[in-house]
C-alpha cells in the first residue's frame, strides 16, 4: 500500500510532458477498473467478459446526463455508476447461477448488447461518431489540465486499492474467496454464495462505470470503441496478466498493458495481437500472473539463503 502511494506521489518526477501524464492517467483509470474486476474474477472466481459494457454505461451515462440534460458532472457520475450497479444486480441474479463457459457467454452477450445500444441509439450517444463530454466541474471550479487530473486519478486509485484490500480481509472478502475455493463448502458454512457473487459483480460494475465516467470527462469525447467486446477482453487480460487474486497485480497488469502500446507505437497497430500473445504466454508460463509469480520467486529466494 505504501509502495503504491509512493509510486503515485513520485511518478510525476519521471513524467516529462503532457503526453506522459496522459498515459499515466489512462493507466490509473484502467487500474481502477481492474482492481474492481479482480474482486470478481480473481477473488470470487467468476468470469466477466462484459465489463466494458459497465465502463460504457458510466461513460455514456455521465456524458448524456451532463451534455444533454445539463446535470452537474458529479451528480451525473454518481448516477451513472449507480445505474451500472443496478443493471448488474438485475442481470446478475439469473446469469451468476451459470458457471464457467456459460457465465462467460452470458456476460459476453450482456457486453455486446450494451455496445449495440450505444452504437444504435445515436440520438443520445452520437452513434459510431461518438459525442463530446463536458469537463468535470464542481461548484464552478473546472478540473482542467493533465496535472490536476493526474492527482485526482492517483488519489482515486489509492482509495480503490485501499477499499479493495479492506474488503478482501473482511468476512465479506473471506466469503468471496471461500466460494471460489469450494462453492458447496462455502454454502454449508452458511455463506449465501449467490448473494456474495452478486455483490462482487455489482461492486465491480460500479467501479468500472465510475472509471468510465471519469475517462469520458477527462478525454472530453467518447466513442463506442471503449464499449466493445475487445475492450472487455483487454480488461480481463490485464487482470490475468497482473495476477488473479492480487490487488497490486491488477494495478501492475493495467499499467504494463496500458502503457506499453502507447509508448511502443509499433504495438498500436498490432494491439490485439499483442494482447492475445500476452494472454497465451501468461497462461503457459505463469498461470498465476506476474505479481504472484514474482512474489513466490522472492519468497523462495529469501528462504534459500
Amino acid at each position: 500500500m505504501l509502495a503504491l502511494i509512493a509510486g503515485v506521489a513520485l511518478l510525476p518526477l519521471a513524467l516529462a510532458n503532457n503526453y506522459h501524464y496522459e498515459i499515466a492517467i489512462l493507466v490509473g483509470l484502467n487500474a481502477i477498473v481492474c482492481v474492481g474486476l479482480n474482486l470478481l474474477i480473481g477473488y470470487a472466481g467468476q468470469i466477466s467478459l462484459g465489463h466494458a459494457g459497465f465502463f460504457g454505461i458510466g461513460a455514456y451515462g455521465s456524458a448524456i446526463l451532463t451534455a444533454r440534460y445539463g446535470w452537474p458532472p458529479l451528480a451525473a457520475l454518481v448516477a451513472a455508476s449507480a445505474a451500472a450497479a443496478a443493471l448488474a444486480f438485475a442481470v446478475g441474479r439469473p446469469i451468476l447461477r451459470l458457471r464457467g463457459h456459460y457465465l462467460a457467454m452470458a456476460t459476453l452477450g450482456l457486453g455486446i448488447i450494451i455496445s449495440i445500444v450505444v452504437a444504435t441509439e445515436d440520438r443520445y450517444t452520437g452513434g459510431p461518431d461518438g459525442m463530446s463530454v463536458p469537463p468535470l466541474a464542481l461548484a464552478g471550479f473546472t478540473l482542467a489540465g493533465e496535472r490536476a487530473w493526474y492527482w485526482l486519478v492517483g488519489a482515486l486509485l489509492v482509495a480503490t486499492v485501499w477499499l479493495s484490500l479492506n474488503l478482501i480481509e473482511s468476512p465479506v472478502g473471506r466469503a468471496l474467496r471461500a466460494l471460489h475455493g469450494s462453492e458447496v463448502a462455502a454454502e454449508v458454512s452458511g455463506i449465501d454464495s449467490a448473494r456474495h457473487k452478486l455483490l462482487a459483480f455489482a461492486l465491480s460494475a460500479a467501479i468500472a462505470a465510475l472509471a468510465g465516467a471519469l475517462t469520458a470527462h477527462y478525454a472530453g469525447f467518447i466513442t463506442p470503441g471503449k464499449v466493445t467486446f475487445l475492450h472487455s477482453i483487454e480488461l480481463v487480460v490485464m487482470v490475468v496478466f497482473g495476477g488473479m487474486a492480487s490487488t497490486f497485480g491488477a494495478v501492475v497488469g493495467a499499467a504494463v498493458l496500458t502503457a506499453l502500446p502507447q509508448l511502443l507505437t509499433v504495438f498500436k497497430e498490432y494491439e490485439m495481437v499483442v494482447f492475445g500473445s500476452v494472454m497465451m504466454l501468461t497462461m503457459i508460463f505463469m498461470p498465476r500472473g506476474l505479481v504472484p509469480t514474482i512474489a513466490a520467486l522472492a519468497a523462495r529466494r529469501r528462504k534459500a539463503p
Partner: peptide, 13 residues
C-alpha cells in the same frame, strides 16, 4: 461466517 455481522460499508472502510 454465520456469526459475523458485517455490512459492505463496514468491510470496505
Amino acid at each position: 461466517h454465520l456469526h459475523e455481522r458485517c455490512t459492505l460499508a463496514a468491510a470496505l472502510l
